[in-house]
Write a protein that binds this DNA or RNA. Structure first.
Lengths: 328, 328
DNA sequence: CTGAAAGCGCTTACAG
DNA sequence: CTGAAAGCGCTTACAG
């Protein structure tokens, strides 16, 4: 690999001039610029990003962090993020929680990345708060309302409310909320909306109807077991609101296979609105989240934070969700 | 951020000694080592990876490149890869084809990554061949048999053969192969196996029955249209072999919705064996690929290549596939 | 076993 | 408008 030094020698200028050409510095004489360009071409010179970043103490790279890439909902977010990155002059790397929190801290502190976007609860609040106080951080999808942090999300409380209202409107009364972790703000906010809808409809809130997997989305049949426990207690489940399309798919599968005995006219509403709602049979009614826009906005918000050095600033962007009715 | 220099000053040693401690060099006196450790602790010192990599001209980082993270099959491969990475001393970044081929070339040439794993056809053969001649490259899942390149994959020809035999065994005769790109080696090898099975069964090979989407997996209803074209020609489709679970899901959806009129007792066999085969209704019979092992092996093969400086060497690892019968 | 010094490949005040 | 020089934060032959 050739370096600026070799380019400089071939073009018969100093390395400083080569660097200026490389960075489109306006003050380079046309003739020099052309000589440098020619040398770059001839040597097939490529700048060493490592050296550049080390010197500039910034990388023009951001990281998008998620628990796993296996959730199709995240794929939509990543697509939006990539679109926003495309002409921004930044690069993006995708990290999963196989990397520990301190990996990210190191990447930030050594300018390997200039900022991070956090999807999904990947570290505890303290850790994220500490990171947010020192570096540009944007949360996407998950969030904390009680610390100064920038995030983009849908209005989960309203979404939970909307979903529950739809189920109530259809005449359902024993509505299960197949939720996620108690630590997740989106889960909790949806629950608030669910409760509010029930309360307005004059239905007593039954905590038993809130079920959660110990992890994941029910791949292991856990949710089916939980539902059966309710059935055994004499509850006739007639509505289910699930935390994700993935979870709804597994539950639907259980129902179709008669692994659970629910009401004949049961309704299911899932969250996310990924392609799973389409390929599922019957098609899943769901609260569609604007995945692309979530990712797109998160990147733009982060880049703005980086460029304006607005560390530790809060800011919220709430995007609209949509209830799309399919067959469940 | 503190640097080796500050650590050295606090510990009252030279930066060379600090560096030696950092790298577990055996020749450091115990007392010095302890002083350095203490200083590192006190300053909360974290090494700057950028500087380290620039100096060492290697990054201990590999990249795994795929067209999109939206395919669940890749998620399994990534999980296996992460497991192999975990205690290897290497890091892994995930790249999608939003990054161009020359992005990877730059990353390799400037030591940002020490090697790459290529999933899915993301550049033309020439480009990959050129990369492979200069840097450590391993292909996973896709491959080229006519150039010197290391890869891991299932035996696609045999898999195509096995799938077709199963359909024939069930008495089907008009078996569609819903394939992928003509440039894909896995697609072509599966086709060879399909042809061989038909030939052995004495069935005339009909090229019309090979249908392909212009891109993707049929999200846009393209495959349904292709199938309908065949139906309109008077062909009673009674078996379908699909390139992916995703594609099978969309086709199944079309069949269930009566968007295509196929034989009553149609069989479908998909490739991959992701969770889609489970949540699909009816459950998809499929050729299960060992996704985890594919990723795991690819990483190990790449690291070996990097460490032994075995550039441009070929090597094949063929893993077993499995036919799992579900409802289709 | 340890340290002074060179160097990885860049960028950028500074002086001219 | 240009170049010499310093420096980003490391590692590693080399000499002692």
């Amino acid at each position: 690999m050739s370096s600026v030094k070799e380019v400089a020698e071939l073009a018969n200028v100093s390395v400083a001039t080569v660097s200026r050409v490389l960075n489109n510095h306006p003050s380079v004489k046309k003739e020099y610029r052309q000589r440098v360009m020619k040398a770059i071409e001839e040597l097939n010179y490529k700048p060493n990003i490592l050296a550049k970043n080390l010197r500039k103490q910034s990388s023009s790279t951001i990281a998008m962090v998620m628990t796993t890439i296996a959730n199709p909902f995240y794929a939509g977010i990543v697509r939006g993020a990539q679109e926003a990155i495309r002409n921004s002059g930044y690069n993006m790397i995708i990290g999963t929680t196989e990397w520990q929190a301190n990996t990210y801290e190191n990447m930030l502190s050594t300018s390997q990345v200039d900022g991070i976007i956090i999807l999904s609860s990947w570290a505890n609040k303290k850790t994220i708060q500490s990171l947010n106080e020192q570096y540009p951080v944007v949360m996407c999808n998950e969030y904390y309302d009680d610390i100064n942090i920038t995030y983009v999300s849908i209005d989960n409380k309203k979404a939970g409310y909307d979903a529950a209202c739809e189920l109530l409107r259809r005449g359902h009364r024993n509505i299960v909320y197949a939720a996620g972790s108690k630590k997740s703000s989106s889960v909790n906010d949806r629950l608030k909306g669910y409760k509010e809808a029930l309360s307005e409809a004059g239905i007593h809130y039954n905590e038993q109807l809130i079920i959660r997997p110990t992890q994941g989305h029910g791949e292991d049949g856990q949710m089916i077991n939980r539902l059966n426990e309710l059935v055994e207690q004499g509850i006739t489940i007639d509505g289910i609101l699930t935390h994700s399309d993935l979870m709804a798919s597994y539950i639907l599968k259980g129902i179709k296979e008669n692994a659970i005995h629910v009401a004949k006219n049961i309704s299911i509403i899932s969250f996310d609105g990924t392609f799973l709602t389409e390929i599922s049979n019957p098609g899943l009614t769901s609260i569609v989240q604007p995945a692309f826009e979530l990712g797109f906005s998160a990147v733009n918000m982060l880049i703005q934070k980086i460029q304006n050095k607005e560390i530790n600033k809060s800011g919220r962007l709430i995007l609209d969700h949509q209830l799309i009715t399919r067959e469940t």
